[in-house]
Simulated assay, not measured.
Amino acid sequence: MTADPLVLDPELERATARLLATVRGLDDAALAAPSRCPGWTRGHVLSHLARNADAYVNLLTWARTGVRTPAYASPQARDADIEAGAARPLAEHLADLEAAAARFAAAIDATPAEAWPAIVAFPSGKEVPAAQLVWARICEVELHHVDLDAGYGPADWPPAFPLRLLHDPATPRVATLADPDGTVLLTVPSTPTVTGPAHLLAAWLSGRGDGTGLTGDLPSLEAWK
């Protein structure tokens, strides 16, 4: 599957539109309720998603200009910004998400072809070509949309997303994966075979599912946490 950022850009636009539609259906009380992320409310998840978009704008600025521009000023600043925005009312969250998504979209449009291979660093320190940022943002939006626990689940992912996620090197490679008709989706040598629909396999491997609906000897994911 392609990782071309310009091919994936429309997919990001659609994922963002789905996220915003879910957010518009919430209210202030719903934002204060727990999310699926331990210790975070739904407001924390939305605050993180907005700041993540801005962090990726910084990385595209780095790629475009050649001037090292970290995603966040520091881990402490990242956490503080998420916390500061978590308790805002729905209207403020929605406006912030829309504006941050628009800034990232504008940054994609402003990135010339020669800048996409430039190496930038995620907050973890992992270095990647800037071209991976669009896919990374799709993952942030789709996975955290599920984390909102607001009616959007893995079954709602578009079919291409879980298949691409299963082949992402960052996804735990602890099993050979097959769909229910026996088609092998991913071969990992010397591992058991786990069978199920692609969205359930991706949910399990990404921590958004407990393995219900899958068959086979499910290995522990503890070492990948």
Rank of each mutant, 00 (worst) to 15 (best):
207 G>E: 03
12 L>R: 04
85 G>F: 04
206 S>E: 08
217 D>T: 15
121 A>E: 13
160 A>G: 12
208 R>L: 12
174 V>N: 01
217 D>N: 06
183 T>K: 15
9 D>H: 15
171 T>D: 09
182 G>L: 07
150 A>V: 00
174 V>C: 13
212 T>D: 12
125 G>R: 03
56 Y>M: 13
157 W>A: 00
81 D>G: 15
15 A>T: 01
51 R>M: 13
182 G>W: 07
173 R>W: 01
141 V>T: 15
154 P>W: 10
187 T>G: 02
192 P>S: 05
163 L>A: 14
33 A>H: 07
152 Y>E: 09
21 A>R: 11
90 L>R: 01
130 A>G: 09
193 T>M: 14
191 T>R: 04
191 T>P: 04
85 G>A: 06
4 D>R: 00
42 R>K: 06
124 S>M: 09
95 A>S: 13
22 T>C: 10
195 T>G: 02
64 R>E: 01
48 H>N: 01
116 W>C: 03
56 Y>N: 11
111 T>A: 01
160 A>V: 14
3 A>T: 15
110 A>V: 07
192 P>D: 03
37 C>Y: 07
58 N>V: 07
109 D>N: 07
169 P>A: 07
37 C>M: 14
162 P>I: 10
10 P>W: 00
205 L>T: 00
145 H>D: 00
48 H>C: 01
127 E>K: 05
172 P>M: 04
197 P>I: 05
50 A>Q: 08
74 S>A: 04
77 A>C: 06
60 L>G: 01
99 A>W: 02
186 L>Q: 02
22 T>Y: 04
183 T>W: 11
90 L>P: 00
129 P>W: 01
38 P>E: 15
173 R>T: 07
39 G>I: 03
14 R>E: 15
92 E>W: 05
152 Y>D: 09
115 A>L: 06
125 G>Y: 04
151 G>S: 06
114 E>Q: 12
207 G>A: 09
135 W>Y: 09
200 L>E: 11
107 A>N: 08
76 Q>H: 13
44 H>A: 01
94 L>T: 11
35 S>K: 02
205 L>W: 06
62 W>K: 01
185 L>I: 11
11 E>V: 07
118 A>W: 00
67 V>C: 05
161 F>W: 09
100 A>M: 09
124 S>A: 10
73 A>I: 12
137 R>Q: 10
45 V>M: 06
115 A>W: 08
27 D>K: 05
205 L>P: 00
65 T>Y: 06
64 R>T: 08
